[in-house]
């Protein structure tokens, strides 16, 4: 599973009790198999040097694990006087978004891109009430998590916590219509392709924009 996908699924789980429960169950099973994984070969392995190094606090090459300091975490995002709770796995990225600020497009779409590295474009997107995103297809994969609110796109309607997977076979036009505004977090691995009328004009820009953000 790619880190980007892991991030999205963990964020969804943070909002979805059912998935969290399934996860706990699976984890418990993994722990059980881990605990009973002792095989007798290991008895012949000499761990004494390792034990010594650890308890003498010898610095160990470069420890892989690096905890995220609490200071770089933002638990809520504010926009247009509204406050949104951010799922824990996205909080470090919310901090980036907050520091970087939002830009407004097409009158009703707020966007804050964040780097998550790799060949991905990640962004928080806020669609105001009555917002319509021009119809577009995807040239790659798009994963979207609804953080707060609802929107529809002609294929289905989505609510807070929903995780949406789209690929190059999907064309849609998200809108918030009667709903209040909607905050989502979305990751795409290649640019959107606008298919509708005048919006086609921004395709070349969308390409440029995509590249600029993933370098």
């Amino acid at each position: 599973m790619s880190p980007a996908l892991s991030l999205m699924i963990a964020s969804h789980m943070d909002m979805c009790k059912k998935c969290m429960e399934s996860f706990d169950l699976l984890q418990e099973r993994a722990v059980n198999s881990f605990e009973s994984s002792h095989n007798s070969f290991a008895d012949n392995v000499d761990f004494s040097q390792m034990f010594k190094d650890i308890t003498e606090d010898k610095p160990f090459c470069d420890g892989y694990y690096c905890p995220v300091p609490q200071s770089v975490v933002t638990t809520t995002l504010q926009l247009e006087g509204k406050v949104f709770n951010i799922p824990q796995p996205l909080q470090r990225f919310a901090e980036k978004a907050r520091n970087q600020g939002w830009s407004k497009h097409l009158g009703k779409i707020w966007q804050a891109g964040v780097t998550i590295g790799g060949k991905n474009l990640a962004q928080f997107i806020y669609m105001e009430q009555g917002c319509v995103v021009p119809e577009h297809s995807h040239t790659g994969n798009e994963i979207t998590l609804v953080i707060d609110g609802q929107f529809s796109d002609g294929m289905s309607s989505y609510d807070s916590g929903d995780l949406i997977f789209l690929n190059d076979s999907h064309t849609h036009s998200p809108y918030t219509a009667n709903h209040n505004g909607c905050l989502v977090f979305s990751i795409v691995d290649s640019p959107l392709h606008f298919t509708d009328g005048w919006a086609k004009l921004i395709n070349p820009l969308s390409n440029l924009y995509f590249k600029a953000n993933t370098d």
């Binding site: 790619s2 880190p3 980007a4 892991s6 991030l7 963990a10 694990y65 690096c66 905890p67 995220v68 609490q70 824990q88 796995p89 996205l90 470090r92 990225f93 780097t115 998550i116 590295g117 790799g118 991905n120």
Partner: peptide, 15 residues
């Protein structure tokens, strides 16, 4: 990998 997503984002254990 260049991804800036670390395990602690996904499962904060030792924060």
């Amino acid at each position: 990998r260049k991804e800036d997503v670390c395990s602690d984002d996904i499962w904060p254990i030792l924060c």
